[in-house]
Amino acid sequence: MQTVKLFECATHEWIVFGRDPDKGEKIVDTNQYLIKTAREAVLLDPGGIELFSSMLASVVHYLPVEQITHLFASHQDPDIISSLGLWDKTLPHATLHAPWIWEGFLRHYGCNNITYKPIADEGGTFKMDGIELDFIPAHYMHSSGNFSVYDPVSKILFSGDVGGGLNGADDPLFVEDFDKHIKQIKTFHQRWMPSERAKQAWLNRVRKLDIDLLCPQHGAIYQGKDIERFLDWLEDLEVGTALRLS
């Protein structure tokens, strides 16, 4: 599994894990993010059950597992958090932050030891070992209960499915050719994002943020001018339109 340190400062680090070579061919590729302070850590969208052993094997290169005190699930999909039952065995004392509407659903994955901390629809701030992360509402982008995560210090926005695409396992971890990349993610956004209103609400929130890296849960990471280009592109794209019924 590829791992790249995205950010490092005195208080914390961001690390991305992705492009797992061991995953099944028909399993969608995902990016998992670890934010690590001196004493604690949070895994953002820890991934599906099929990815668990690769993820666990990768994170122990950076910290002892007991340092992971928090998990975050942007929404309820299996590629996001179907590994919960196994993390529950690995990190029995951890806390899972996830949209309140999914609690009863996510518990189907197995959540006997981990504490479920529901995130209210309005979002909020999460504090961990001296750092603060903002849960930005991203409802209907694509899930009906959905959050992005913003770190004002690193200026990293974890955007969940927004900006993602069904990329191949060999695709670059960072956007290299924006025009080529955008073609690959167009249908994904048109089909997976159901609401123009929700899209606009998310864009309004996100445009107020100072972003250096826009990190989706699938596909490639946006940096520099590509972030603004992506937001403009998304604004112009009519979503909820890719359904083709015969």
């Binding site: 061991d22 052993s53 990768s58 950076y62």
Partner: peptide
């Protein structure tokens, strides 16, 4: 899954954790 992780972790510094 845990055994799989153990195998994949190789010489990771916190492998035993």
């Amino acid at each position: 899954h845990f055994n799989g992780a153990k195998q994949k972790a190789g010489n990771a510094i916190y492998r035993d954790s």
